[in-house]
Every structure is written in structure tokens, then in C-alpha cells.
Amino acid sequence: MAKIMIVEDEAVIGQLIMEELEKWQFDTFGTTDFHQVLLDFKTEEPQLILLDINLPVFDGYYWCQKIREISKVPIIFISSRNTNMDMIMAMNMGADDFITKPFELDVLVAKINALLRRSYNYVENNSETISHNGLVLNVDNGSVDVNGEVIDLSKNEYRLLYILMKNHGKILSREKLLRALWDDERFVDDNTLTVNINRLRRKIEQAGVKGYIETKVGQGYIIP
């Protein structure tokens, strides 16, 4: 999966972006020394950069220009500055896209995937499938093939099945699954996880596979 470099001086935002991208199996790297953005870029060799405009020392326009002198790596500006002039300057400096704060993380991920496809003419690991005990999860379109029957999944059902299949044989706690599904599980009713698990189970069972996801009382869930 592609490596994404995050140049964002607001630690909370940077961490949220990093956690979301890691859910989708991106390799992430966050710059911490804003004197060394270009050096970090050369060292890490990312396939895409998320670049804020308002940064300590030099702004994002400066670093975009410096990176463009040596590389055509895709760059997405992320900024609370949302005037037409900011966007025009970003594009003139060589940015490939621009997203304004606040933004939905799902929108950011979609922009990243689209830009990677355009830039490298390939679909990342999203073109892969995950197979286990008769189920084939299509990571590209969020569907699952069960005994030849294709079942559409909601976003949360897909994420649940993805993380459970990737960790088959391991018990995953409710807390870990909540963190994988939502940015801050403190604001999610615990019953929401149960509802999504039950819907996912029902769809799999209706396709003819019983007991695919097991409940471990007091521990969590497992795909054995």
C-alpha cells in the first residue's frame, strides 16, 4: 500500500488523519520537524503528500515549490484557508488537489485513492481480495462473495468484516472494533456495534454460511 506523508502542525488533526489512513492499510508518516520537510520527503520517499498551508517556519506553498523542483509526487493541500486565491495559488505551485477544513475523513480517503489511481495508473491494495473459509471479500467495491453469491455491504459492515478477516484466529475486543469503525468511540452507543455485527452475520448466514463470526463472551469477536 502507498506511503502517505502528512505535513500538519495541528497534532490532533494529524493524528486523526493518520489513524483513518491506517484503517485503510496505508503506510503513514507524519513530519514533526518543520525545518526538515524536504529532507523528510527525500528520506521517506512517499507516494503522496498531504500538506497544510499554515505551517511553522515556512508555509505549505514554500514546501510544495521545493518538492516540485525534484519530484512530481501527488500533493493534496489541506487547509482552513478556502478562498479562491488560496486554491489558485496551490494549483499554480503544483498541487494536485485541495481540501478545506473541516472535512470528512471518508472524502479525504476517496480523494487520495482517486489521485493515486490517476498518478500511478494502478489501484492500490483496494484491488485485492481477502479469502477465508469460503468468503471472498472484494476490497475494491466493498462486497463479499459467499459460495458464489455476491453480497453488498454497508461501509461499517465492510470495515468490520475486513478487520475480522485480516485478524482471523484472533479475538478482537469491542473497544478495538469501535476504534476501527469510528473516530471517537466515546460518542457511539455500544449497541451500534452489536447492530452492525448482527446485520453482517445475518447477510452471511442468509448466503448459507452459519457461525462465521463467533462471540467470545466478555472478550469480543473472532473469525476462527
Rank of each mutant, 00 (worst) to 15 (best):
M1D: 11
I4F: 05
I4C: 04
M5A: 08
V12C: 09
Q15C: 12
E20V: 05
E22N: 14
W24N: 10
Q25Y: 06
F26C: 10
F29V: 02
G30N: 07
T31Y: 02
T32P: 02
D33F: 01
D33P: 00
D33S: 13
F34R: 00
V37A: 05
P46N: 01
P46G: 05
P46D: 11
L48C: 07
L50S: 07
D52K: 05
P56G: 02
V57G: 03
V57N: 11
D59V: 03
D59Y: 08
Y61L: 07
Y61M: 11
K66P: 02
K66F: 09
R68N: 01
E69T: 10
S71M: 01
P74K: 01
I75S: 06
S79L: 12
S80P: 01
S80W: 09
N82M: 03
T83P: 06
M87K: 15
M87P: 07
M89D: 09
A90N: 02
M93S: 11
M93P: 03
A95I: 07
A95H: 05
D96E: 11
T100P: 08
P102S: 13
P102H: 05
E104C: 01
E104N: 04
L105H: 13
V109S: 06
V109T: 09
A110N: 10
N113H: 14
N113R: 14
A114D: 15
A114Y: 04
A114V: 06
L115T: 10
R117M: 08
R118C: 08
N121L: 06
N126V: 10
S127Q: 15
E128N: 15
T129L: 06
T129S: 13
I130E: 12
G134T: 04
L135I: 07
V136L: 10
V136T: 14
L137K: 00
V139K: 08
V139Y: 06
N141R: 15
N141G: 03
S143C: 03
D145M: 12
G148V: 04
I151V: 15
I151Y: 08
D152A: 07
S154V: 02
N156W: 00
N156G: 03
E157H: 00
Y158K: 00
Y158A: 00
Y162C: 02
M165G: 13
K166E: 12
N167W: 05
G169C: 11
K170F: 08
L172C: 05
L172F: 12
S173K: 01
S173E: 01
R174N: 05
R174D: 10
E175W: 02
K176L: 10
K176W: 10
A180N: 14
A180F: 03
D183C: 11
E185Y: 01
R186N: 09
F187E: 12
D189L: 07
D189E: 14
D189C: 06
D190S: 09
N191Y: 13
N191F: 07
T192I: 11
L193T: 03
N196D: 08
N198S: 14
R199Q: 00
R201T: 02
R201Y: 12
Q206S: 09
Q206L: 14
K210I: 11
K210A: 10
K210W: 05
I213F: 13
E214T: 02
T215L: 12
V217I: 14
V217P: 04
G220Q: 00
Y221I: 01
I222Y: 05
I222G: 04
P224F: 11
